[in-house]
C-alpha cells in the first residue's frame, strides 16, 4: 500500500454554515495503481486530491503515505515529501510563463538541488519521452494546449516521484488530445511504475483507472477495483 486515507474530513466555514467538502472518506491505494476519482462539481474530488499532501489541510482524519502518517506533519516535512515523492498535473497546466519548456521541467530538480548537468540530462530525456525534444527552448505561450500539458506531465515525473496527483489533466483539451494525454499517463503508470491518482469529469478518462472512486457530497459512494 502506498497511500491510505482514513475517515478524512475537510470542512469549510461559510456564512451559511459549515460545509463538509470531504466527509469521512476512507480509501487505500496500492503501489502501481491507477486511481480515478469522479463525481459531480463540488463533490470534493479536487479537495481530496490536494489534501493528501498538505496543499489543503484536513479538518480531521488520517493520511498514511509509504507507511508513514503524514496528516500531522509540519509544513516543512510535507513540502519535502511533495518535492521528492509527488508529481502534480493540473487542468490549467500550471507552467511558469517566463520559463522555457526545459526550464519548467528542470524546476522540480532545481528545488531538490540536483546539479545543473544532471538536471539538463534528465529533463532532456523526459522531454524526449513525451515527444517534445524539439520544443525545449519554447515558452509555454508558444506551445499548443496538448504540448503544454505534456510539458506539465514531463515536469511531474522528472524527479521520479512515487505518485502523481492529476487534477482534471484533460479538462482543457479536446477529445483527441485528451486521449493522447491519457495514453501518456497510462504509459507512465505501466513503464515507470508510478502510481497515479487522477480526478476527472470524463467517463472515458475514468475508464483508464484500475481503481475507481466516485464521490458525491464529500462521500465515496461507488468504489470499483
Amino acid at each position: 500500500m502506498i497511500l491510505q486515507g482514513d475517515k478524512i474530513v475537510r470542512q469549510y466555514k461559510h456564512k451559511s454554515g459549515v460545509i463538509n467538502a470531504l466527509d469521512q472518506v476512507s480509501f487505500m491505494v496500492e503501489k502501481g495503481d491507477f486511481v480515478t476519482v469522479t463525481g459531480p462539481s463540488g463533490s470534493g474530488k479536487s479537495t481530496l486530491l490536494l489534501s493528501m499532501f498538505g496543499l489543503v489541510r484536513l479538518t480531521s482524519g488520517t493520511v498514511i503515505f509509504n507507511g508513514q502518517r503524514i496528516d500531522d506533519c509540519s509544513d516543512r516535512k510535507l513540502t519535502e515529501i511533495r518535492r521528492k515523492s509527488v508529481g502534480y498535473i493540473l487542468q490549467s497546466f500550471a507552467l511558469i510563463p517566463y520559463l522555457t519548456t526545459i526550464q519548467n521541467v528542470m524546476m522540480p530538480l532545481a528545488l531538490d538541488r540536483v546539479p545543473a548537468g544532471e538536471q539538463l540530462k534528465r529533463a532532456s530525456e523526459i522531454l524526449d519521452f513525451v515527444g517534445l525534444s524539439d520544443r525545449m527552448d519554447h515558452l509555454p505561450r508558444e506551445l499548443s494546449a496538448g504540448q503544454q500539458q505534456r510539458v506539465a506531465i514531463a515536469r511531474s515525473i522528472v524527479h521520479r516521484p512515487a505518485i502523481i496527483m492529476a487534477d482534471e489533466p484533460t479538462g482543457n483539451l479536446d477529445p483527441a488530445l485528451s486521449l493522447e494525454i491519457l495514453e501518456f499517463l497510462k504509459k507512465i503508470n505501466r513503464e515507470q511504475h508510478i502510481t497515479i491518482m487522477m480526478v476527472t469529469h470524463s467517463p472515458v478518462a475514468a475508464e483508464y483507472g484500475s481503481m475507481k472512486l466516485h464521490l458525491r457530497d464529500g462521500k465515496i459512494v461507488i468504489r470499483n477495483s
Binding site: D75, R82, K84, V86, Y88, A94, P108, R155
Partner: peptide, 16 residues
C-alpha cells in the same frame, strides 16, 4: 500568486 502556488505545489519551502 499563482507562480508561488505552483512552486509550493512542486515542493518549494517557505525559504525558497
Amino acid at each position: 500568486k499563482r507562480e508561488i502556488g505552483i512552486l509550493r505545489m512542486m515542493g518549494a519551502g517557505r525559504a525558497v
